[in-house]
């Protein structure tokens, strides 16, 4: 199967990309790794008339520490591909949850193409990296005609394939706190190794995020509050599905998804705690 026809624009800078977005309006889509967009275009579930290829913007691929001390953040360029993040020494030292989760996305060929900015902008509720980013906290850095702005990750993913981003903006960077030696856990439940998660749970530093338990990735706030009150991991994990609204599909109905959210949260928290 093949996509419907479209116009293709290759850009070399963020400014060029933003100009193209402004010029072509809402019919245009940014193409980074293309591994979320092209499959749905082949099935003709998405029919953009213009594709703006941003993969040639070379200065969007980096992982670095910004600032120092406890306020220092790890900045990841939106064009960083999953395999680059997986192997990045800075990321492994400063925020080890992220490279681990990057290595759990799809399969090697997908990780060779997919970018963290692309998966962030796509806002699939079953995405691995947004789940990890949400657990880590931090911000999504957007750039638009009016300049740059930072949106907290807790406010970025607003629904099923929906974000707080305007159509004329693009993701240029992800900023997450350094976690260093703080324990973390990631539990991804699939039937096959390279499937999208039926449910996933990321835990780090008292925060827990869940994949596929609502229209977007969500935080398990009841669990986090219980932990803050001093509840045990087992007690807190029992609250993980509170406030979520999971869907039903052939792999899991709502009841089972809720069970998995509680189970995976417990396991992720235990791993994070070194239990």
């Amino acid at each position: 199967m093949i996509p419907s026809p479209f116009e293709y624009v290759k850009v070399r800078s963020v400014d060029e990309a933003l100009a193209a977005l402004t010029e072509h309006g809402e019919d245009a889509k940014l193409l980074a790794g293309g591994h979320s967009l092209l499959p749905i275009m082949k099935l003709r579930l998405a029919i953009p008339t213009v594709l703006i290829d941003i993969s040639g913007i070379s200065d969007l691929s980096y992982v670095r520490v910004d600032g120092d001390g406890p306020d220092a953040m790890v900045a990841i360029g939106a064009g960083t591909r999953h395999f680059e993040l997986e192997r990045d020494d800075v990321a492994r030292t400063e925020v080890p949850l992220l490279p681990h989760v990057a290595g759990r996305v799809g399969d090697p060929q997908v990780r060779h193409r997919g970018t963290i900015g692309g998966t962030t902008a796509h806002s699939d509720p079953a995405s691995d990296l947004p789940t990890a980013l949400l657990a880590l906290g931090g911000t999504v850095v957007l750039q638009g005609p009016g300049g740059r702005r930072e949106v907290p990750v807790t406010e970025f993913w607003t629904g099923f394939f929906e974000t707080a981003m305007s159509p004329d903006e693009m993701v240029v960077e992800l900023r997450v706190p350094r976690t260093g030696s703080i324990g973390w856990g990631y539990e991804k439940f699939t039937r096959r190794e390279n499937d999208w998660p039926i449910v996933a749970a990321a835990a780090v530093d008292g925060r827990v995020a869940l994949a596929n338990m609502a229209g977007s990735v969500v935080r398990a706030t009841a669990t986090e509050e219980a932990l803050a009150r001093g509840a045990s991991i087992a007690e807190a994990a029992e609250l993980a599905d509170q406030g979520t609204s999971p869907g039903a599909d052939m792999h899991a109905d709502q009841e089972y998804r809720r069970h998995l959210a509680r189970l995976l949260t417990r396991r992720a928290l235990e791993t994070a705690a070194g239990v």
């Binding site: 293709y8 290759k10 193409l31 293309g34 591994h35 092209l38 499959p39 082949k42 290829d53 993969s55 395999f83 090697p108 060929q109 997908v110 060779h112 193409r113």
Partner: peptide, 13 residues
């Protein structure tokens, strides 16, 4: 130098 699935890459890319 990297393995990719050529059904999910455009020739123009």
């Amino acid at each position: 130098g990297l393995s990719v699935k050529s059904c999910t890459v455009l020739a123009v890319q």
